[in-house]
Computed example of a mutant assay.
Amino acid sequence: MAAGYSLHLTNTTAIKQYDRLKHRGDECDARHLAHILRLGLLPEGHIMLQPIRAVRDLARERMQLVQQRTTQLVAIQTCLMQQTGEAVAANDIKRLTCSFVDALALEPDTVLGIKANLFVLQALQTRSTSLKTSWQRIAMATQNINCSPAWQALAPSSLRSFFLRPARSSALLTPATTHRTADV
């Protein structure tokens, strides 16, 4: 790509010839792929531009952190429900402190487990927030890059709404939103 050649990314298992034939050789494969490309039948994937890849990678990392945070949150909820018999809201768990957990009449091992989950939950929240800030900065810097129609379609609807939505404490709404959304 950098040398001026066009690069085509394809899944060779999606091409009929590769369903039933074993490896016949690089030259034969190249000839067949070139023929399919000339016919316009080559199933291609998209290779994102380098600056856009950074945005995508940050989005993926943040999504994984949010999923891990949710796992910790559910673990704390489940433990408290099993030990106390009462359901605790997710927002209440996010506000838990170690001193409050110590004040609960629970077994020492259970308290230790809840504190460990709480510590991990808070660390994941901190990292997720910092990634969100980094993503916003990079997304704004790469906003005017000429990229594929697929990225242009994806970025405004999914990624921008995922990362650029207003914080829960903010009463301001962006023009694209019609209702307030909770901060993830």
Rank of each mutant, 00 (worst) to 15 (best):
L104S: 03
A14V: 11
R38N: 01
D102P: 09
L131N: 01
F119H: 15
T12P: 13
N146Q: 15
L37T: 02
L112A: 14
L39E: 05
Q136R: 14
R53W: 00
C79L: 05
K16N: 01
L118W: 03
A3I: 11
V55T: 04
T97A: 01
S170M: 05
T126F: 02
D26A: 07
V111W: 02
V88T: 14
R60Y: 10
C79V: 03
T70D: 02
Q77Y: 07
L154V: 06
K115Y: 03
L112Y: 04
S99Q: 06
L124E: 06
P51I: 04
Q77A: 05
T71Y: 14
L80M: 06
L154T: 10
I36R: 03
T97N: 09
N11R: 12
D183Y: 07
N146G: 07
C98Q: 01
T129H: 12
L159G: 07
Q125H: 09
S157A: 09
A155H: 12
Q122R: 15
S6F: 08
L80A: 11
L96S: 05
L104E: 13
F163H: 11
K132I: 00
D109P: 06
E86W: 14
I47G: 04
R165F: 15
A3L: 02
Q17T: 10
Q125M: 11
D29Y: 02
K132H: 08
T12A: 09
K94G: 07
P108L: 08
R168T: 09
L106W: 04
R24W: 06
R137T: 11
M1N: 10
H46L: 05
L58W: 00
V120G: 09
R31Y: 12
A89K: 14
P166H: 07
K22P: 00
E44F: 04
D102N: 15
H8D: 02
L172T: 12
T178D: 10
L49I: 08
A176M: 09
I114H: 01
A103Y: 08
A89H: 10
A14K: 15
V120Q: 01
T78K: 15
F162P: 04
T78E: 13
A139V: 06
L159P: 06
P166W: 09
Q83K: 08
Q72P: 00
I138Y: 00
Q136P: 03
F100I: 14
A14S: 13
T177M: 14
C147Y: 02
T174K: 14
L173E: 01
F100D: 05
L131A: 00
L104G: 13
P175R: 05
L106V: 07
Q122L: 06
L7D: 00
A75Q: 07
L121D: 02
T97I: 08
A2R: 03
V101T: 09
A176Y: 08
L42S: 13
A75M: 14
E107D: 15
D109A: 15
T126L: 03
S134P: 04
Q72H: 11
H23S: 10
E27A: 14
V74W: 12
L172P: 01
T174G: 09
R180N: 02
L7V: 10
S157K: 12
L42Y: 01
I145P: 02
A14L: 08
R160V: 10
S158P: 06
R127M: 01
V184I: 08
A139W: 05
A87Y: 06
